[in-house]
Write a protein that binds this DNA or RNA. Structure first.
Length: 493
RNA sequence: GGCAUCGUGGCCGAGUGGCUAGGCACAGCUCUGCAAAAGCUUGUACAGCGGUUCGAAUCCGCUCGAUGCCUCCA
């Protein structure tokens, strides 16, 4: 039997603001769409958090035995700098700045994006479509929206008529906004706008003669609006209505709101059953953002080359740090917090390494079955990774007790514990053991064992000056010795 | 100004009507030649003020503060 039939999951749906029982549209199958990056610069850590959160969700679905189609797009066209009529495409702007082809910009930052996510151990999505690869689909949707009377053509551009739409539908249901309020609060700055209403958004923009990124359409040469690509690609690969749509909290309005409007205006259906939003990562209490410069790049954390943190942190530690907070909470990055996470991470990894070597007994002091279910309960409650991790640390304590001979574990329970720990840490949380990833670790271990032997001889001879020298100098090199009941063990940092 | 979210012990971070996660740091103890590691013990925190309730950090109201969105952002 598939695990998902036994483990009942609840998810927080942004559309209703409530935790709801998760029931996929087609039993055993899940369609999930997550808004990917606009590839006009390097991904910063805040971007990574969102993708990591949905990676964890993707992994848990797979762990439960669901067949998941996970679509995450690459925005390589259509993302405007601002809403003004002469607004520039972000990628085209960058291309002009660096004096290269727009597609070179796209290629460069797409490669960076993939490399970075790989470092953080994210699984690739099932499909990773690009906006430029789906121009035809986008044009088709625009045609439908025009046909249904919810869009209008002006001077080679097409705009979505929000006011008209709101007469028969509700614009703002996801973000909790009312169109009347939005209109009342509009700053009247767009004097010569070709839009009927400031709330209207572009489905298709006319390309000026010097604009490089352009495609033919029934309305002339141009390029698609940003909100439209997600509607086109999610519909194509997941259908008119699918299970989960994810993205950063900052995309809730207007991006996701517009997606809902586009779907309802074209095919008449609400596109998504469960909307999931990941919260922001802050730095110094402020949102990380490319546009304000308040950000840190993953490579800077791993290399330690930055002015914010006292030392480098591995990708696994950063991932563990992120998983210690719930994905819907704001998380603030700081050196203290990362240091605390690093220590916890190392303790967890050490227990995980010791676990298979543990002695077994006829009986167990630890109810592994009950503990295992607690881990599932945590994840079933809207992917509560902090609670899951607290449960993992309960197991760490029991592992250490068994290691010291203070508690017992049966063979069967030990095996179950090994399986469960590995499943949650590696498969679900996606946390790898990077504590000893050296290629030379075999040699290194041998050398340390040799020194331990020499030290033990010195200790037997009560030559503590020598034994302490070995221990302290190894410690200075990052090799920590631990004298236990069954001899000396060590960790390498 | 509008909409939304949030304010938890030294730090990070769960919880959301009674049973008061977890990590890190600190202190004491056990173990140890000494350390380290590990284990045990200790912290009675929920912005403020009212209200509902037998009972609130958790619900309601107000005040203060922070953040996000309202123009591009994961």
């Amino acid at each position: 039997m598939q695990l998902y039939k036994k483990q009942k999951l609840k998810v927080h749906n942004s559309l209703t603001g409530k935790k709801e029982d998760f029931v996929p549209i087609n039993e055993g199958h899940i369609g999930m769409y997550v808004c990917g990056p606009t590839v006009y610069s390097f991904v910063h850590l805040g971007n990574c958090r969102t993708f990591m959160s949905f990676d964890m969700i993707f992994r848990y679905f797979k762990h439960l035995g669901f067949k998941v189609r996970y679509v995450r797009n690459i925005t390589d066209a259509g993302h405007l700098e601002n809403d003004a009529d002469e607004g520039e495409d972000k990628i085209a702007k960058k291309a002009k700045l660096e004096q290269i082809e727009p597609m070179e910009v796209v290629q460069r930052y797409t490669v960076d994006f993939h490399n970075t996510l790989q470092q953080f151990n994210l699984l690739p999505p099932s499909i990773e479509p690009t906006a430029t690869g789906h121009i035809i689909e986008q044009i088709e949707i625009i045609k439908e929206i025009i046909e249904n009377g919810f869009a209008y053509v002006v001077n080679g551009s097409v705009y979505f008529d929000v006011v008209k739409f709101n007469e028969s539908h509700t614009y703002g249901k996801l973000s909790g906004r009312k169109l009347e309020d939005m209109i009342a609060n509009t700053r009247e700055l767009t004097a010569q706008s070709e839009k009927r209403n400031p709330q209207d958004f572009a489905l298709w923009k006319k390309a000026e003669p010097q604009h490089i990124m352009r495609w033919p359409s029934p309305w002339g040469d141009g390029f698609p609006g940003w909100h439209l690509e997600c509607t086109a690609m999610s519909t194509k690969y997941l259908g008119e209505t699918f299970d989960i749509h994810g993205g950063g909290m900052d995309l809730k309005f207007p991006h996701h709101e517009c997606e809902i409007a586009q779907s309802e205006a074209s095919c008449g259906k609400s596109p998504v059953k469960y909307w999931l939003h990941a919260n922001m990562l802050t730095l110094n209490g402020k949102k990380m953002s490319k546009s304000t410069g308040n950000n840190i790049y993953p490579s800077e954390i791993i290399s330690g080359e930055n002015n914010i943190l006292s030392k480098p942190y591995s990708a696994a530690v950063v991932r563990f740090f992120m998983m210690q907070a719930h994905y819907t909470s704001i998380l603030d990055l700081s050196d203290d917090a990362l240091q605390a996470s690093e220590k916890g991470y190392l303790r967890l990894m050490e227990a995980l390494e010791n676990l298979p070597k543990l002695p077994t007994s006829a009986t167990s002091d630890f109810d592994v079955q009950a503990w295992r279910q607690k881990c599932y309960d945590a994840m079933n409650d809207d992917f509560n990774t902090p609670i899951l991790i607290s449960n993992l640390f309960d197991a760490v304590k029991r592992i250490n007790l068994v290691k010291e001979g203070k508690e017992t574990l049966s063979e069967a329970d030990k095996n179950l514990l090994v399986d469960t720990m590995s499943a949650f840490i590696h498969d679900v949380l996606g946390i790898e053991n990077q504590a000893h990833s050296d290629d030379n670790s075999q040699t290194l271990n041998g050398i340390v064992e040799l020194l331990i032997g020499l030290r033990n001889e010195a200790r037997a001879n009560k030559d503590f000056a020598t034994s302490d020298k070995i221990r302290d100098e190894l410690n200075a090199l990052g090799v920590q010795l631990k004298d236990g009941k069954d001899g000396t063990s060590f960790t390498i940092n």
